[in-house]
């Protein structure tokens, strides 16, 4: 007979939203290892902030693949990060009023940053600016 397993790690929640967020935290984490490290290697090692400018982004987002890549990373990283912040809030903020306040901030941040990030990634249209600069340059 084996000894009972010690309680290690964050206890898996019994069900409901907390269990879904527990699984989401781990699955999004695994996907983000691939997405974020690819992103870091391309944008910070192969290229650097010296090369990256508006034209670089316009070129890159000419490809639907990189737009999809960036949007998926935005979605997963934002929700993964804010879920982590939510756990920190649950750990440290005890007073009911402050908890409601902190959770409201986090959920609002999720909605607002997801909207502005999605607008940036999905609606960006360089042709208007490029046409303007060509006209100005000629």
């Amino acid at each position: 007979m084996s000894a009972p397993r010690p309680r290690v790690g964050r206890e898996r929640p019994a069900g409901g939203f907390e269990l879904y967020s527990w699984y989401f935290f781990r699955i999004s984490g695994l996907l983000l290892i691939f997405l974020a490290i690819t992103h870091v290697v391309i944008m910070h090692v192969i290229n650097t902030v010296d090369e990256i400018d508006w034209n670089f982004v316009a070129d890159r987002w000419g490809s639907p693949f990189w737009r999809a890549f960036d949007w998926l990373m935005l979605f997963l990283a934002l929700l993964h990060g804010l879920n982590g912040a939510r756990l920190a809030v649950d750990d440290y903020i005890r007073a009911r009023g402050w908890r409601i306040f902190a959770h409201s901030i986090l959920w609002s941040a999720a909605v607002i940053f997801l909207i502005i990030g999605s607008i940036a990634v999905l609606t960006f249209d360089p042709s208007a600016f490029q046409a303007a600069s060509t006209a100005a340059g000629s």
């Binding site: 508006w54 034209n55 316009a58 990283a77 940036a120």
Partner: peptide
């Protein structure tokens, strides 16, 4: 590290949003 990366992510979303305002603003 998690909270630190989250902080940068929020800043990064704001800066990439400025791409939509054109090359002058962003650069």
């Amino acid at each position: 590290t998690g909270l630190g990366v989250l902080l940068f992510l929020l800043l990064h979303i704001v800066d990439i949003f400025l791409v939509g305002y054109g090359p002058e603003t962003f650069n």
